[in-house]
Amino acid sequence: MDIRVLKPSDIPHVQMANITNLPENYFCKYYLYHAMSWPQLSYVAVDVSRPPKTPYDPPKIVGYVLAKMEEEPTDGVQHGHITSLSVMRTHRRLGLAEKLMRQSQRAMAETFSAHYVSLHVRVSNTAALHLYRDTLGFTVDKIEAKYYADGEDAYSMRMELDQYKGKDLEDVEMEDQDEGDAVGSEGKAEGNKGEGGAEGAKKEASAGKKRKVKVGRALGVSGLVERNETGS
């Protein structure tokens, strides 16, 4: 299985892997929103061994991690967030989830100067809990009551990303300048929202109750930002 960064053309099968395995689903545009905002952070596991049947065979995606940067961190600290991670049942025990996570985490630190990465996991999902806590080194931050649509609680977990701070390019025998403390590169990228102006016919997100993300296929991209709380 190859582990590589997600490309836009992977999205249909990433979407299928997601809706096959997990109850939290998203439409294509939400995947695009990730891929267009933080293209370095999402990774796929691909079965490359199958001989293609037609010249149009898309890569066979057997796992993915969909990741982002928190756009407006409440604690003011740059950090990444795992939106979704899954590996097909047929491809378990190969360590794919861990490998996907590690690639994504490093990119968060390297590209966006993330200090830590956070995620949510169902309290009943012991396999995932094991991966995050015991294999990767996440800690449980808190329990978020009734986080999921079906009423289940979530562990809110996080992991510091210090280990990835500026050490990788030395091998290239190039002058490698110190990363320094990165502050707010994100804010800058979002700077010129003004251009959006009369973009017009966007509809208000009538955000579903306590439900993430499933708002707005017809919305502009800005409407795709996660919403946790009730709109009304």
Binding site: V5, E110, L169, M174, E175
Partner: peptide, 8 residues
């Protein structure tokens, strides 16, 4: 290359 943010 030095300092470019997308190392991969």
């Amino acid at each position: 290359l030095p300092g470019n943010l997308d190392k991969t």
